[in-house]
Write a protein that binds this DNA or RNA. Sequence first.
DNA 1: CATTTCACCGAAAGCGCTTTCGATAAATTT
DNA 2: AAATTTATCGAAAGCGCTTTCGGTGAAATG
Lengths: 337, 337
Amino acid sequence: MGTIYDLAKITGFSITTVSKALNNYSDVSEKTKAKIVQAAADMGYLPNAHAQSLSTKRSWTIGVMFSEANEVGMMHPFFNAIIESFRKATEQQGYDLIFASRNLRNRDMSYLEHFQHRAVDGIVVICSDQMDKHVQELIQSSIPIVVVDMDSTDCSVVFSDNLSGGTLAVNHLYELGHRLIAHIAGDMTIDAGLARIEGYKQAMDRLALPIPDGYLINGGFFSVEEGKQAMQMLLALPKRPTAVFVAGDQMAIGAMEAIHEAGLQVPHDISVVGYDDIEMSKYVTPKLTTVRQDTERIGQHAAELLIEQIVNKRRVMTTDIIPVDLIVRQSTGPVKP
Amino acid sequence: MGTIYDLAKITGFSITTVSKALNNYSDVSEKTKAKIVQAAADMGYLPNAHAQSLSTKRSWTIGVMFSEANEVGMMHPFFNAIIESFRKATEQQGYDLIFASRNLRNRDMSYLEHFQHRAVDGIVVICSDQMDKHVQELIQSSIPIVVVDMDSTDCSVVFSDNLSGGTLAVNHLYELGHRLIAHIAGDMTIDAGLARIEGYKQAMDRLALPIPDGYLINGGFFSVEEGKQAMQMLLALPKRPTAVFVAGDQMAIGAMEAIHEAGLQVPHDISVVGYDDIEMSKYVTPKLTTVRQDTERIGQHAAELLIEQIVNKRRVMTTDIIPVDLIVRQSTGPVKP
DNA sequence: CATTTCACCGAAAGCGCTTTCGATAAATTT
DNA sequence: AAATTTATCGAAAGCGCTTTCGGTGAAATG
C-alpha cells in the first residue's frame, strides 16, 4: 500500500508535492501531477483516513445512534428503512456511517463522548424517546446533528405528519360508516405516539364523535404483542368498537391476531388501519390498510439537513414534517349494518 | 475537550507520563496516575481515536459489507438480525461498526480499498453472492475477515446447516402424509439456495420420492414477489403438489398469497414450509411452519471468529455450520385423503 | 560506604498526512 | 537589460497520540 513518503521517494518529489498532486492543488504542474498520480496507481496507494482526519479535523464519518424505549434498534423495519435511505444519501457524498456503542474498551461512556472520541463530522439519531439522556446530551452538544422521528426545537428534526396521519385514518373509517372508532396508541412519551393520539382526538372531535371510555388505549412501544393485548382489552369492552386505528403496523398485526382469535373477522366485524406501511403490511391477511410513512424521503431529507450543517459549519434548527399517505387495502370495510 | 498536551500543562507532567497514566502503564506511580486521571475527568478529556489509530495501527473498527444479488442489504430481516447480534457482540469488546460505501468523495473504489483506507481491524461480509468480485477481493486480502451465509475455504465462514434444513422440511411434510412435495428454491448461484436444494433432493431420494418435472423451481432471490410467481407456476402444473418447501420465508409468504389467490387454502389444500423464521412468520395467516435459522448465534459466532483473528493477528479459515430447527406452526397439515 | 537495583519520569522519534510560507527559476513586463 | 510576475516546488510545523530508551534519585544490597 505505501505512504506518501514512498511515493515521494519513487517519483523524486517532496511529500508536500505528492500530497498536493494527490489533492489536485493548483500549484503543481500537470506533468508532475500526472507522474505522481500514475505512481500512486501503480503501487495501489491509498491515503490513510486516520492521518487525514487528524490533520484536517474532518473525518467523513457520521455517527448513528438508535434510541428507543423498546430497544429494537435496527431491527424495526421502519427505522431500518430510514437508516437505509439515509445511508444511500450520505454515502453518495462520501460519508461512512459508524455505529458507535457506549462501550469504549473497558470504559463506559456516553454516546456523545464516544462520538467525540471518534471525531464524527455529524450525528443522526433515530429516535423515539424524548426522555433519553443521551439524546438530550447529543442535542445540546455542538456537533452537527439531525434527529428523526422526534420533535425538538433545539436541533434539526424530521418526522412524519403524524397529526394528519391520525386524521386520515379516522376520516377513512368514518366514511366507511364507522362511528365507534377506537385507537390503540403508542406510548405518550413518544412524540409520534402522542401526535397520532392528537390526530385521532381532533378528527373524532371534528366529526362530533365521542370517545367512549376505554376507546383510547395505550399499546406501549409498538410491538406485535402489545398490540394484541391492547386489542384484547378493546374486545372485552361492553360496547365493542367497529373500527380501530392502530398507531403502528406491528401493533395492528397483533390487533388483527387478537380479533381473529376472538373468532371475529377483519374487516367484516372490525376494521383496522395501521401506521407505517412496513413491507409486511401488504402480505398479512387481510392486507393492512395503513398510513404510509415516506421512509425514503425522511432518510434522504435527514441526510441533506445534516450534510448541509456539516459543510456550512453551522447548526441549523429546522423541523421538517414529511407528509403521509393513506394506503387503503383490505383490513377496512364498511360497517356492518 | 483538550489533548494530552493540555493535561500535561495542567498537571505539570510530561505528555509521556500523561499518556502512560491514561493507559495504565506500570511505570507511573499511583499518586501521579490519580492526579492525571482526575484532571482528565475534570476537563472532560477524551482521546482522539484517529491519533490513537495512527500511532497504534489499531482502529477498533470493523467494516461491514453487504453483498447480495437482490440488493436489499440491511433491509432483509434475516441479514438484519444477524448484523444486530454481530453488533452487540463486537460492541461489547469495544469495536465500532463502520458501513463503508464504494464511494470515496469523488473517487470510485472497491470495498477492499475503502476498508484499507479506513484501516479497519477486520471485516464482516454478510453475503449470499459467491460471484461478487468485491467479496472475492476481500477474501483474498490479508485483513481479518469472516463471511456469513456463504461457503468458502479461503476464509472463516459461518452459515446455517442448510442441508439438514431441507431434510427437516421434507421429512416433516412426509410424515404428514405428503408425497407430492415441491421446492421453491433460492437461486443456485447462492450457496444457501443451493444447499437447500441439495437437502431437498437428498431427503426426497432417501424417502424414495420422485421429483416430478417442474417440482423444483427457481424462486430467484428470495423476494415475496418471486415466491408468488414461482408458486403460480407450481399451481399451473398438471399434477399439483400437495406440499411445498420454500427456501425463504418471504418467498413462502408470496407463495401462500398465490395459493390463496387461486382460491385454495393453506394448509388444507397445500402445505407450505418456509425457511428463516423471520419475525413476521408467526403473524401471517396461517402462521408459517418454517426452518429457523439461529441468527443470534450466527452473528455472535461470526463476531467471536473475527475478533479472535484480530487479536491473534493470524487468519483463520474455519467453516462453522450452525444447526437449524423446524418450527411447526399452522401452514402445514396432513395431506387431504 | 560503595554498589546495585528499583521505581518513576521525560525526551524524542514516529504514525501519515495537510498546509503555510518561502524559495527558486522562468516568463513577462517596463 | 532591469524589474516584476508567475509557475512550480519543498522545508517545516503541526494534528494528538504511543512507545522506546535513557536518566534520575531513592532504596536495597554487599
